[in-house]
Design a protein around this nucleic acid. Structure first.
Lengths: 215, 215
DNA sequence: CCGAATCCTGGTAGATACTG
DNA sequence: CAGTATCTACCAGGATTCGG
């Protein structure tokens, strides 16, 4: 039983020993959007084998990145939640996601667009230097799911579900509608004109949005 | 033959498909210090199976992160070198290394301290906000190997081997000598007094060094 | 000696079925 | 809902061998 270690006194090697196995970082990514139940995680990771998910959650809990918590009575469910230690991985995940996004033009056949993958896309494309000092909330409706983006003190929080008090609601009406805005393939005016997106709120905020989130 | 993909349109998932396998990121880490031969890589990754190293280099070359180049005549050797695309992984590696370093107090039994792992430690502990605008070169002699650190325009370059014109040479005379400085376990004056490090050049620069590189 | 390829073993992932 | 159990296929680890 050779523990799968790299035998080096190196932060990167240690990190890879903890979160370097297949699926682990994607589970952490999904938990960045908030606590999730086992079934939520399965939904967000459509092709993960269930035994692997359960093994990874166990490892993450042992390593102190995740806590397993039973919800109080009426829910009678188990939720998995990141610890602060686990949440500290966010900068590294964002850096990786940004690197990986460079070769990502269009979805491959069969590739899913999940709420968490889009949430990650907002994190990786967020340009804090554009948003500095601003406070603004967006609700992005993607058809199958809705995300809430809140910018405050120059930092971004992404969650799954509607925004309680959005300054702007952006609704995707066509595939790649929001994506085309973020890559610059379409200007806000073009996207509004051809009906690929629709907004509620002050339409001018859409310009701010495309400057803030940019591939 | 299910290609090992994650089935998600997500930058992080794509990144993991390219560099998520065991050893891959450590190979990239080692190549960050400059081109390396197959044997150099084996030396820097003491426990990697040789077939895995050769497989990973092939994959990295196919993915466009690494080029394989035959040196001209007298050397008659092959060197592997990062492409710009591969080098762009550095911020992500640094972010991961920084996260992993938090649980890294002392080497585990049998754990090697290689030139590249120390080079990585300097990259992850580098605080650009301290060094802003400065230009300074350090040579760090660790016993088995020597590193050169050059700071210019606020950005750090780390290489293996002596520095051609160092402002300060730091020589480690005892185990953990430099490490104790970087964690703050010892002040520069203490380390110089107890003989765990020795310097050549202006000794005051050692204070700057410990402010610049900090776990 | 450098740069691998080959072989074998055991562990890990993938797919699906099943259960408290 | 929240996982185990089981089986197969593949990949990593380790040693050895091989060609230039």
């Amino acid at each position: 039983m050779t523990a799968r270690v790299y035998g080096q006194f190196c932060g990167l090697a240690r990190a890879m020993e903890v979160v370097g196995e297949r699926w682990t970082l994607l589970i952490v990514r999904n938990l960045l959007s908030g606590p999730q139940r086992y079934t939520d995680l399965r939904k967000g990771l459509p092709t993960i084998p269930t035994n692997i998910l359960s093994a990874r959650l166990k490892q993450l809990e042992e390593a102190g990145l995740v806590t397993r918590r039973a919800l109080p009575h009426p829910e009678r469910a188990v939720v998995y939640e990141l610890t602060d230690y686990g949440r500290d991985l966010e900068p590294a995940l964002v850096a990786f996601g940004r690197w990986g996004a460079r070769t990502m033009t269009t979805p491959r056949p069969g590739e899913a667009i999940t709420a968490e993958s889009v949430a990650m896309a907002f994190r990786t494309t967020y340009r804090s230097e554009v948003a500095r000092g601003a406070t603004v909330g967006y609700e992005v409706r993607m058809g199958d799911f809705t995300l809430r983006l809140q910018i405050a003190d120059g930092s971004l929080t992404v969650g799954i579900g509607p925004h309680p008090a959005p300054d702007l609601v952006i609704e995707r009406l066509a595939d790649q509608g929001v994506h085309a805005l973020m890559t610059g393939a379409k200007t806000p005016d073009q996207a509004l004109a051809d009906g690929s997106v629709r907004v509620e709120g002050e339409p001018g905020l859409l310009h701010r949005f495309v400057e803030t989130f940019r591939f």
